[in-house]
Nucleic acid binder design. Structure first.
Lengths: 174, 174
DNA sequence: GCCTAATATCTTATAAACTAAGATAATTAG
DNA sequence: CTAATTATCTTAGTTTATAAGATATTAGGC
């Protein structure tokens, strides 16, 4: 019974299942923001900061897609709440680095514990070989999403006249 | 030699890889909303509608975590833009079902094409047995995230005195 | 059947957070 | 040195959210 389901049906089920669980993942993030008492955008910036450590205001704007003005607001709020600190770059004094204050940020990290525990529980029912496959998929998937994001964004940058039918050559920016 | 990587290391890598790709997934969603010219919340509601087909305003509020007043606004905007239509339930005339207008919704669906293509490309490099494993994981994962969301929300309802310490995850080294 | 409570959505006033445009300040190039 | 560029912040106005309560419908107890 190697084909109880056709490959096509399998792929379709996969698509739907992935969509559902990623939607639920988004909602988890919102719930964390709510419990932590900070806005969604602030939370997203914290995530970036926790991953990259020390980032300029401009890069936050770039990554989140917010305007620099909005980022000023985000950083004001997070600084006031004690999560981050502004540090002017001494070699280029226009730049402002935002850096995480670890002790305070750890309070937020706690809210990810239920998620980590749930995932550990799920993974505990898989063999090591299966986990290796999942890891391969997570990495392949990440690359795929990056690719898709680039393809989609090239649509944004295409002037409306030319936008009629979408093509995929990723346009190099910056 | 069945463990080139220890199970623990594997799980940790998985955790990080999943976090990265889901963060990228969130960004894809934002990009779609931007290209489609509708807000993030509106987009989220559209996603729910596309999945469930026909949903009451109250359920949208429940699922998204927005107030019913905010949902009124969301539906007003989407109705005005022609994506959905309000339908009063004849058997309980307090209820308002929101249902998708397929032809118009397809315009949004088109922005998911780059993502679908990227995923198809990824999946094409897996065997059917492997796809079945991925499907199992997607479903298990969804259940896990639901569980985690519930666990997190129970923290909201816990009085602050008892909320003091949650277990921290095993310190992740990067 | 009638009154009260509960449910589902919408309305209003107000607040939060965003954008667009432009001000400020520092750096780089000619 | 001056002009152009870069990075962030400020301001005015808009969008989208909340909280509280209005409106309309249904359900339950007597």
């Amino acid at each position: 019974m190697s084909s109880a389901k056709s490959r096509e049906a399998l792929v379709q089920e996969l698509e739907e299942a992935m969509r559902r669980s990623s939607a639920q993942g988004v909602m988890y993030g919102q719930a964390v923001a709510e419990v932590a008492g900070i806005s969604n955008s602030d939370m997203e910036c914290m995530d970036i900061l926790l991953l990259e450590g020390r980032v300029t205001a401009g890069r936050l704007a770039e990554v989140t897609g917010l305007t620099t003005g909005a980022i000023t607001g985000v950083v004001d709020r997070m600084e006031k709440a004690g999560y981050v600190r502004r540090e002017r770059d001494e070699s280029d004094r226009r730049k402002v680095f935002i850096s995480v204050i670890e002790e305070k940020a750890a309070e937020i990290g706690k809210f990810y514990v239920p998620m980590q525990e749930a995932m550990l529980k799920v993974w505990s029912s898989y063999t090591e070989d299966e986990l290796r496959l999942l890891l391969r998929f997570a990495n392949d998937g990440h690359k795929g999403v990056l690719e898709a994001t680039a393809a989609l964004k090239s649509v944004i940058d295409t002037p409306p006249e030319q936008r009629a039918k979408l093509k995929m050559p990723p346009k190099s920016r910056r």
